[in-house]
Amino acid sequence: MKFGILVNEGPFTHQASDSAYQFVKAAIEKGHQVMRVFFYYDGVNNANKLSAPQSDDRNLVKMWGDLAKEHNLDLVVCIAAALRRGIVEDNLAEGFRISGLGQLTEVGIAADRLVVFGD
Protein backbone atom coordinates (compact mmCIF):
# COMPACT_ATOMS: atom_id res chain seq x y z
CA MET A 1 0.00 0.00 0.00
CA LYS A 2 1.09 3.57 -0.66
CA PHE A 3 0.91 5.72 2.48
CA GLY A 4 1.00 9.44 3.02
CA ILE A 5 1.75 10.56 6.58
CA LEU A 6 0.75 13.80 8.30
CA VAL A 7 2.56 14.75 11.51
CA ASN A 8 0.75 17.49 13.41
CA GLU A 9 2.77 17.86 16.60
CA GLY A 10 6.33 18.60 17.64
CA PRO A 11 8.75 16.03 19.06
CA PHE A 12 8.34 16.83 22.76
CA THR A 13 4.89 17.94 23.94
CA HIS A 14 3.09 15.07 22.20
CA GLN A 15 3.72 11.47 21.23
CA ALA A 16 2.38 12.03 17.70
CA SER A 17 5.75 12.26 15.99
CA ASP A 18 7.11 9.19 17.82
CA SER A 19 4.04 7.21 16.79
CA ALA A 20 4.34 8.40 13.20
CA TYR A 21 8.02 7.42 13.15
CA GLN A 22 7.26 3.93 14.47
CA PHE A 23 4.41 3.56 11.98
CA VAL A 24 6.56 4.61 9.02
CA LYS A 25 9.35 2.25 10.08
CA ALA A 26 6.94 -0.67 10.50
CA ALA A 27 5.15 0.07 7.22
CA ILE A 28 8.42 0.07 5.28
CA GLU A 29 9.57 -3.14 7.02
CA LYS A 30 6.30 -4.78 5.90
CA GLY A 31 7.03 -3.78 2.31
CA HIS A 32 4.68 -0.82 2.03
CA GLN A 33 5.63 2.44 0.39
CA VAL A 34 5.64 5.75 2.26
CA MET A 35 5.31 8.38 -0.45
CA ARG A 36 5.74 11.42 1.77
CA VAL A 37 5.74 12.52 5.41
CA PHE A 38 4.25 16.01 5.71
CA PHE A 39 4.92 18.09 8.83
CA TYR A 40 2.28 20.66 9.73
CA TYR A 41 1.25 22.78 12.75
CA ASP A 42 3.91 22.33 15.49
CA GLY A 43 4.99 19.24 13.55
CA VAL A 44 7.44 21.50 11.71
CA ASN A 45 9.52 21.55 14.92
CA ASN A 46 10.58 17.99 14.06
CA ALA A 47 12.83 19.56 11.43
CA ASN A 48 14.72 21.97 13.71
CA LYS A 49 18.37 20.92 13.71
CA LEU A 50 19.07 23.24 16.67
CA SER A 51 16.95 20.97 18.84
CA ALA A 52 19.26 19.40 21.44
CA PRO A 53 17.54 16.86 23.67
CA GLN A 54 19.37 15.47 26.69
CA SER A 55 21.73 12.64 25.90
CA ASP A 56 19.54 9.93 27.48
CA ASP A 57 16.49 11.03 25.44
CA ARG A 58 15.73 9.91 21.89
CA ASN A 59 16.53 12.49 19.22
CA LEU A 60 13.57 12.42 16.83
CA VAL A 61 14.93 15.14 14.56
CA LYS A 62 17.97 12.99 13.85
CA MET A 63 15.93 9.76 13.77
CA TRP A 64 13.63 11.15 11.06
CA GLY A 65 16.66 12.33 9.08
CA ASP A 66 18.40 8.95 9.37
CA LEU A 67 15.23 7.10 8.36
CA ALA A 68 14.86 9.40 5.36
CA LYS A 69 18.43 8.72 4.30
CA GLU A 70 18.08 4.96 4.71
CA HIS A 71 14.82 4.66 2.78
CA ASN A 72 14.92 7.72 0.52
CA LEU A 73 11.89 9.19 2.33
CA ASP A 74 10.38 12.50 1.30
CA LEU A 75 10.10 14.60 4.48
CA VAL A 76 8.27 17.84 3.74
CA VAL A 77 7.87 20.76 6.12
CA CYS A 78 5.04 23.22 5.48
CA ILE A 79 6.55 26.61 4.65
CA ALA A 80 3.77 28.74 6.17
CA ALA A 81 3.78 26.80 9.44
CA ALA A 82 7.60 26.68 9.44
CA LEU A 83 8.23 30.40 8.94
CA ARG A 84 5.91 31.27 11.85
CA ARG A 85 7.93 29.00 14.09
CA GLY A 86 11.35 30.06 12.90
CA ILE A 87 12.17 26.96 10.87
CA VAL A 88 14.11 28.12 7.82
CA GLU A 89 16.77 26.66 5.49
CA ASP A 90 19.50 27.76 7.93
CA ASN A 91 18.27 25.50 10.74
CA LEU A 92 16.56 22.83 8.68
CA ALA A 93 17.73 19.38 9.71
CA GLU A 94 19.23 16.96 7.20
CA GLY A 95 16.72 14.89 5.27
CA PHE A 96 13.91 17.48 5.34
CA ARG A 97 12.81 19.96 2.72
CA ILE A 98 10.55 23.00 2.97
CA SER A 99 7.64 23.29 0.58
CA GLY A 100 4.03 24.44 0.27
CA LEU A 101 0.78 23.13 1.71
CA GLY A 102 -0.16 21.93 -1.76
CA GLN A 103 2.22 19.02 -1.13
CA LEU A 104 -0.17 17.79 1.58
CA THR A 105 -3.20 17.85 -0.72
CA GLU A 106 -1.09 16.24 -3.42
CA VAL A 107 -0.06 13.25 -1.29
CA GLY A 108 -3.66 12.94 -0.10
CA ILE A 109 -4.67 12.48 -3.72
CA ALA A 110 -1.76 10.26 -4.74
CA ALA A 111 -1.55 7.89 -1.75
CA ASP A 112 -3.91 5.01 -0.97
CA ARG A 113 -4.17 6.22 2.63
CA LEU A 114 -3.26 9.42 4.43
CA VAL A 115 -2.57 8.59 8.06
CA VAL A 116 -2.74 11.52 10.48
CA PHE A 117 -0.77 11.68 13.73
CA GLY A 118 -1.84 14.46 16.06
CA ASP A 119 -3.60 15.63 19.15
Binding site: Y41, A80, A81, L101, G102, L104, T105, E106, I109
Partner: peptide, 19 residues
Protein backbone atom coordinates in the same frame (compact mmCIF):
# COMPACT_ATOMS: atom_id res chain seq x y z
CA UNK B 1 -4.63 27.17 19.81
CA UNK B 2 -3.52 27.62 16.21
CA UNK B 3 -5.38 24.62 14.80
CA UNK B 4 -8.38 26.54 13.41
CA UNK B 5 -6.25 29.02 11.48
CA UNK B 6 -3.91 26.38 10.06
CA UNK B 7 -6.75 24.05 8.99
CA UNK B 8 -8.28 27.04 7.21
CA UNK B 9 -4.99 27.67 5.40
CA UNK B 10 -4.87 24.00 4.33
CA UNK B 11 -8.45 24.15 3.00
CA UNK B 12 -7.78 27.31 1.00
CA UNK B 13 -4.62 25.90 -0.61
CA UNK B 14 -6.40 22.65 -1.47
CA UNK B 15 -8.98 24.48 -3.62
CA UNK B 16 -6.45 24.69 -6.47
CA UNK B 17 -6.50 20.89 -6.74
CA UNK B 18 -10.25 20.79 -7.51
CA UNK B 19 -11.04 17.95 -5.10
Amino acid sequence: TIYALEVLEAVLISAAFEQ
